[in-house]
Amino acid sequence: MAMNLDNCPQCGKVYVKNNYNICPACLKGIEDQYRLCVEYLRKHRSCSMHELSEGTGVSVRMITRFIREGRITNREAPNVQTACEVCGGSVKDGTICDTCRMKLSKDMNHLKEDVLRRAEEERKKNPTFQIKDRDDNKRL
């Protein structure tokens, strides 16, 4: 029976592969950092991202990771915001700001319309006759 072994990307130790793709020791460290953040936010709900980082010793990058994973929410930390992955503006929830989300949605709707229009043009260029069309003509 072969065991799936890998090197931890954070510390380099060999570990048995798991769902988190890091060794148990590093996973425990991340969970400890998360608990520090949650405890600090319970006492200092209105702190900013940098105040949270300074108060806990947890890096801004790790706090951002917790927010993106949905582990720290806007309800728990209303003043802790991350940067939009598209424009760099501030984001309270998720990975992109409302402006970029609306633009993305608008672009997707235009893309759908274009695909439908092209399909309709193609259908007009190459008309086909199907048995169901013949049956519809008889009913008229």
Score class of each variant (00 low, 15 high):
Asp6Val: 00
Cys8Asp: 00
Glu54Trp: 05
Asn74Lys: 09
Lys138Gln: 13
Lys103Gly: 03
Glu31Pro: 05
Asp107Ser: 02
Asn109Asp: 15
Gly94Glu: 10
Leu116Asp: 10
Glu113Thr: 03
Glu121Asn: 04
Pro9Asn: 06
Gly89Glu: 15
Asp114Leu: 13
Val60Gln: 05
Ile96Asn: 01
Met49Thr: 02
Gly12His: 08
Cys47Ser: 07
Lys138Arg: 09
Arg118Met: 12
Ser105Arg: 13
Ser59Asn: 00
Arg42Leu: 12
Arg101Cys: 08
Ile96His: 08
Gln10Leu: 12
Asp93Lys: 12
Lys124Pro: 02
Glu54Lys: 09
Gly94Phe: 03
Gly57Ile: 08
Ala119Ile: 04
Ile72Asp: 03
Thr95Ser: 10
Gly12Val: 04
Arg42Ser: 03
Thr99Glu: 15
Asp133Cys: 14
Arg45Ala: 10
Cys11Glu: 11
Leu36Asn: 07
Lys112Ile: 11
Val58His: 02
Glu69Asn: 04
Lys112Arg: 15
Arg134Val: 14
Glu120Pro: 04
Thr64Leu: 07
Arg65Cys: 05
Arg71Val: 03
Thr95Ile: 07
Arg139Lys: 11
Cys47Gln: 01
Lys13Trp: 01
Arg118Cys: 11
Cys26Asp: 00
Lys103Met: 13
Leu111Ile: 01
Asn126Met: 08
Asp114His: 10
Lys28Ala: 11
Arg118Gly: 03
Lys132Asn: 11
Arg45Glu: 10
Thr82Glu: 05
Asn4Ile: 13
Asn79Met: 07
Ser46Phe: 12
Ser48Ile: 00
Gln81Phe: 12
Thr56Arg: 00
Leu27His: 09
Ser90Ala: 14
Asp6His: 04
Leu36Phe: 01
Gly57Trp: 09
Ile30Trp: 04
Gly88Ile: 01
Asn79Val: 03
Val80Asp: 01
Gln33Glu: 14
